[in-house]
């Protein structure tokens, strides 16, 4: 069966993920409504505002069905806001979430926008060459469960993780031309 990757397009940088997938020659479609999910085999949750996306997921009746699909094994990748939405625990927040990733996240962990930064980040699963990582008002994972593999960290805190079919990064590969993280995610779908 031909695979099709959905990009959650409720709010945020969904266009950049669509572009990244197009660069890799992968069929992709924007997901705005629950029905759009029927046609996709995997999902990317983009960066954006996690509280906004969470509310729109609830308003659209998508939160529970999405959680069921992910729990049943659908590959999902969340960047920044997407990572927050995937986490089970969010420090100091009751905001809506999918809660499928066994981890605790701290939002805006590096500070405000003036503290945002770019850095070269070692991520061995992608090879020896570091990734150019863009952190914008970014979160970090302050703790992760035993079933979660840490793929990259900054100051000893996880900023990229995998738990079976779930991939999450604090940073935004979609803002760069390095496609390795998207390629790595696509290996989950075969």
């Amino acid at each position: 069966m031909a695979r099709c990757v959905g990009v959650l397009a409720l709010q945020g940088a969904f266009r950049e993920h669509m572009t990244a997938l197009a660069r890799l020659g992968v069929a992709a479609r924007e997901v705005r409504k629950l029905q759009d999910m029927d046609a996709v085999d995997a999902l990317i949750i983009p960066g954006g505002e996690s509280t906004t996306i969470g509310k729109l997921l609830i308003d659209g009746g998508m939160l529970d069905p999405l959680r069921k699909r992910i729990t049943a094994g659908m590959p999902v990748y969340g960047s920044c806001a997407g990572l927050i939405l995937l986490c089970r625990n969010i420090e100091d927040s009751e905001q809506p979430r999918l809660g499928v990733l066994d981890a605790t996240v701290r939002r805006n962990a590096f500070g405000r926008q003036v503290d945002s930064f770019e850095t070269e980040l070692s991520m061995p699963v992608l090879g020896v060459e570091p990734v150019s990582a863009v952190f914008i008002r970014a979160p970090v994972l302050t703790s992760v469960g035993d079933n979660v593999t840490v793929l990259a960290q900054i100051n000893g805190q996880a900023v990229a993780v995998r738990q079976d079919n779930v991939l999450a990064t604090s940073f935004h590969p979609e803002l760069t031309t390095d496609s390795r993280i998207h390629s790595y995610f696509l290996t989950f779908t075969v």
């Binding site: 409720l10 709010q11 945020g12 940088a13 960066g47 954006g48 926008q113 945002s116 770019e118 914008i136």
Partner: peptide, 20 residues
Amino acid sequence: MEQGTIRLKTGLAEMLKGGV
């Protein structure tokens, strides 16, 4: 580590897209 780059500045705006 770099701060205040044009990518970080335009990047935050990219994250606001589709929003109010």
